[in-house]
Design a protein around this nucleic acid. Structure first.
Length: 452
DNA sequence: TAGCTCGTTGGACAA
DNA sequence: TTTGTCCAACGAGCT
């Protein structure tokens, strides 16, 4: 019996439910990845993420070769490709792990219905700790506040043993043709990606190593040190988690295991697991409120009086030329490495949406294109939280002051100097005090105009 | 059921 | 220089 394992955002061999169950059930396994270049508004792959995907697919293929198989690459619309592959190989089962953004969920539902005419289809959860519909309030509606949500999650139990990596994945006896990875065109023509990728190691092995290095190096101090962008105190697991090179269950499992031997790291690592929880919560909200992909959850914000004629200001923000050192440092870190420290993400987002009064969607789009860890749910959630229009949002008067933030979290200026060596940088593009007051005034205008 | 406290990440201002 | 208070208002969850 032959089974197709359709890889999507689960580019790993360990703790991969679809792969695990396919290997147990089938004598021959066809590992497949489909690149669908059709432009859609929600699932378009940003330039930096495309580069990561290229390397991740390469790593997955290498790992598959080590256990006797190869990754089959195809390009185009998923359903006809799967149907053709089933017809050509006589496969009788298709396995995949679910992807939880609304567009993928509805597409997969259609594909499942169509494929069930000709074969068995099995889908699994391999990217979330729990299914989003499993955890609800006592009245049956979804949580909108993180703390009670996370408490309920912990109470119901988030730990389980990760599935082992199959020691051997039997290849089909008749080889299946594959397109070349280069034909996907994921790498840019002008190779700006080489210096960016010098900051990263891609693939399942690197992802696990990253976690295992992080736990002893930074686990104990995580709670406080993670706020200081000059320190390498955060896990940097986000791109690995996004592409599924490691699962959140694996992160939780290894963290708990580490804690049994290093109980002193308890406080720090509870906060680290809480960050895994925030990732989970953003998927949870996106599943329950799918319209929040591009619309504010708080309906009052759908007619927020944003500033006009801001093209030039947006451009200066993107290029890291705002004249505010910590903002410019963050935007340049993003440009050079495909990643930005979490605290700095909040600072630059607050600056864009509040001091410049530019819609959060503009910032969300730029992040989507330039981050290697772009994750629809986390990105949308984070931006809405900062803009004050999402679930559990920051109060409207919470406007970060970039000068005070750098004094508090980069007092020695190490982070700023690393990315803005030409200090003092250009003159500020906006007056902090005046722009803060302008934002507060406009937020007051929409207050009381009705809520969700 | 009513009443109460609390809520990831802050800043300005007065004392 | 540091510390306390206020900046809204609503849903979650407890008593």
């Amino acid at each position: 019996m032959t089974a197709i394992v359709w890889f999507r955002q689960d580019l790993r061999l360990s703790d991969n439910a679809a792969l695990y169950h396919a290997c147990r059930a089938a004598g021959q396994v066809i590992p497949l990845f489909i690149h669908d270049p059709t432009p859609t508004t929600v699932s378009q792959l940003g330039a930096a993420s495309s580069v990561w995907l290229h390397h991740s697919l390469q790593a997955l293929d290498t790992d598959l070769q080590a256990v006797g198989n190869r990754l089959v690459l195809r390009q185009g619309e998923a359903l006809p490709i799967l149907q053709a592959l089933i017809a050509a190989t006589g496969a009788t089962r298709v396995y995949w792990n679910r992807v939880y953004d609304p567009a993928s969920l509805s597409r997969d539902t259609q594909i499942k219905a169509a494929l069930r005419q000709v074969c068995e289809v099995h889908s699994f959860n391999a990217s979330l700790l729990k299914e989003p519909w499993e955890v609800l309030k006592s009245d049956g509606t979804p949580y909108k506040v993180f703390t009670p949500y996370w408490k309920a999650m912990l109470k119901s139990g988030i730990q389980r043993l990760p599935l082992p990596s199959p020691p051997h994945i039997p290849a089909p006896t008749v080889p299946v043709a594959s397109e070349s990875l280069e034909s996907f065109g994921l790498l840019p023509r002008i190779r700006w990606d080489t210096p960016m990728m010098a900051h990263w190691q891609v693939g399942e092995t690197a992802a696990l190593q990253r976690l295992l290095d992080f736990l002893p190096d930074s686990g104990a101090d995580y709670k406080d040190a993670r706020n200081f962008p000059a320190q390498p105190a955060t896990s940097r697991l986000s791109p690995h988690l996004h592409f599924g090179e490691i699962s959140p269950q694996q992160a939780v499992y290894h963290t708990e295991h580490f804690l049994t031997q290093h109980p002193g790291a308890e406080s720090g690592l509870r906060h680290f697991m809480q960050e895994i929880g925030w990732r989970e919560f953003s998927y949870y909200l996106l599943c329950h409120f799918p319209q929040t992909i591009d619309q504010a959850l708080d309906v009052r914000f759908r007619q927020f009086p944003w500033a006009e004629n801001t093209a030039e200001l947006l451009e200066r923000w993107k290029r890291g030329q705002t004249g505010f050192p910590i903002v410019d440092a963050g935007m340049r870190e993003l440009w050079h490495t495909g990643w930005m420290h979490n605290r700095v993400r909040m600072i630059v987002a607050s600056f864009l949406t509040k001091n410049l009064l530019i819609p959060w969607q503009a910032g969300e789009n730029w992040f989507r294109d330039t981050l290697v860890d772009t994750d629809l749910a986390s990105n949308v959630f984070g931006w809405q939280w900062t803009a004050g229009c999402g679930a559990d949002a920051a109060p409207y008067f919470r406007i970060f002051n970039p000068i005070l933030q750098s004094q508090k979290f980069d007092a020695a200026g190490d982070y700023i100097r690393r990315w803005v060596p030409e200090l003092p940088c250009s003159s500020p593009i906006v007056d902090l005090k005046a722009s803060r007051e302008r934002a507060l005034e406009r937020f007051k205008r929409i207050a009381g105009s009705g809520t969700v």
